[in-house]
Structures are given as C-alpha cells and as structure tokens.
Computed example of a mutant assay.
Amino acid sequence: MVRRSRRDDPEKILKNLISLLERFEEKLVDSDLREQVQSLVPVNHKLRDLGGSLIDDVQADSARDRILAYLRKYPGVEVLGDELMVVAGISEYARRIRELRVEQGWPIFTGLAIKEALDDDLIDNHVREPEKKYKKDNYILVEDKQDRDSAHRWNLANEIRKSKDGVKSKLLRYFRENVGKRITGEELKYLAKGRSEWARRVRELRTEEGWPIVTRVTGMPSLPVGIYVLEEDRQAKVHDRKIPDPVRIKVLERDKFSCRGRDCGWNYENANKGDHYRTFLELHHMEHHALGGSNTLENLITLCNICHDKVHREKTPAVELLKLLED
C-alpha cells in the first residue's frame, strides 16, 4: 500500500529529518549496502512529509488538493512537475493532475499542449516571451476558474476519440457538440490521440473551412491562452473563408476587437447578456472577395454577426464602409 505523506509543522519535520540524516552519516561508515538503503527509507518519507506540509491550507489534506492549491497560487505560470511532486508528497502526482482536469474541470495544461498551440501560430507571438520553451513535464493553470461541465465534455471526447474518423472530423464534431463553450487545448489534443497536428487542424477548420472558432487573438481577447470557442454552428460563406490569420489579427487589432457598424461598437467586453442575437465578430470584404476584392487590411472591416448580415442584405457599398473606418 502506498504511504500517504503526513502533514505537520514543517520546522518539526525538518528537525526530525536532520536527525535521520545524521544517523545515516554513521551508516555510511560501517554498514553494508542494504542497511544504508533501509536507513534512507524514513528519510524519504520525511522529505515527502515536509513537501506536503508546505501548503498551509487546512483544507488541502489530500495530494490532489495540495497540487491545486499550489497551482492556484501561480495561475498562468509554468510550474515544474517536480514542484508538484514535492507538494503532493507522492510520486503519482500526474494522475492527480488528470483528475483535477478531467473530473473537476480545472484548465491545467501540460507545457507541450501550450507549445503546440503557440508553434502553429494560433496564439500571437506577443502573448508569450519569445525565449520561453514550454516543456512536456511542466504544467500551467491557464485560468483560475473551474469548469463544472468539463466531466461531461471529457466523456463525450472519449466517445468521439474511439471513432475511425480523421482528426479534423473528430475535432469538428466535438466543437459542434459544444457550441459556445470554452474548450481547452488539452481536450483537443486528447481527441487527436496526442498527435501534435490537432492545432493545425483547428486552424484549418477556422481559416479554410470557415467555422467561427475563436481564440485569444483571433476574435475574443478575453479568452485565456489555449482556450477555443466555436461561436456558432455555421460555416462562413465560401468567399469569406480564406483570410490569412496574420491579416485577420491586424484587422481585429485595428478595429479594437469591436464592430465598426453604424452606431454599434459591440464587442465581447460590453456584450449585453440579454442580447441573444449579437454574439460574435466577423470580417467583411468591403470590395467583395467574389468580385476580386483582396484579403488585405485595407479591404476588410470588423462587424458583429448582426451588422454583417445587414451589410449583405442592404448591399452597403464599399465607399460607405470606408467612412465607418474614418469615424
């Protein structure tokens, strides 16, 4: 049976640990190998007790609770797996992290999942430090917020993962089953059976197939790094699909992530929860793409879905839309 760490006053544990180490020093001189190893067993136990006692939260009695308490002290910060092993007081800390993620809905990412999203340019370069190298065995609590619906989503992900469909089809099915919900990169990576292509496939769904999947820099700046939302279960019209991400980001930044429609100004920050119709931002070609209009900063304007539909319905000319950018 695995021994659980015993929490106590850290100073008291430290004194006991020093005493054990002093006795071990004597074993090194005149004992055989097995006696030396056996004398280190209680030292190892005390070290785990010490690590588990560093979290002073009285509610953090289990290894899982201590891991969560530690991560919540440093949200958004890459934490070494070894740090979590210390505060957990057990070697099987990775299983406890998975429980926190899958069963309790805490958005805990491995460094690898963050790296894969960043490497495929789904997150703009200014979001991270250029020299930062996220590592596989490190962890990040990307947001100090629990998602209580996550257990249901993970069960669904497990079902979809077993299908014989390709990665992109699995991802799209999962998004369409969770319209408007925050989905983590860890969920998408799991659907792809750990393959790094998941990030590229999400990008293709957005830029090539026109599904309105937004991230922190592609439409919804309030999102944490590594979180994705399918805003609506519909594809953009064919001529609006292939706007390159670098151009899309520049347009959104120029327009301050807000609708430039006449007397509108809607964005995710000032959204009225009672407005169930105005729900997301889209880019509109002032000179229609189907008629030769280019995917350039000068030919694109940010509109909410309501204003976008209105512009198409009323066939608003490009010259009037250009005036909106000047206002």
Rank of each mutant, 00 (worst) to 15 (best):
V86L: 14
E92K: 08
W106E: 01
E92L: 03
P107S: 05
I90W: 01
V87R: 12
V127L: 09
V87T: 13
K135A: 05
A117E: 09
V86M: 10
I108Y: 06
A88P: 08
N138S: 15
I140S: 03
G111D: 01
I114S: 08
L141R: 01
A113F: 07
A117H: 04
Y139K: 08
M85C: 08
K135C: 01
L112P: 03
I108N: 06
D119N: 11
E103V: 04
Y134D: 10
I123E: 14
A88D: 05
G105H: 00
R128E: 15
D144N: 14
K132H: 10
G111L: 03
E129F: 13
R98Q: 13
R98P: 01
K136P: 06
Q104W: 07
I123N: 07
R128G: 11
I114N: 03
L141E: 00
I90Y: 01
Y139R: 04
I108R: 01
A88L: 11
R101Y: 00
A117K: 03
R98C: 09
I140N: 05
Q146W: 04
S91F: 12
K115T: 05
A94L: 09
D124H: 12
T110C: 10
T110L: 03
G105A: 02
L122Q: 01
K135Q: 12
L112Q: 15
E92D: 07
L100P: 11
D144P: 04
R128P: 07
Y139I: 01
A88F: 08
L112A: 15
V127K: 03
I114D: 04
V86I: 14
A94V: 08
A88I: 09
Y134W: 13
V102G: 00
Y93C: 00
N138E: 08
F109N: 06
A94M: 11
A113P: 04
A94F: 10
L100Y: 13
I90L: 02
K133N: 14
V87D: 12
H126K: 14
T110W: 09
G89H: 10
D124T: 06
E103N: 11
G111V: 01
E92N: 04
G89I: 00
G105N: 02
L118T: 02
K145I: 05
A94D: 13
A88C: 00
E92S: 11
T110N: 12
R95D: 13
T110D: 03
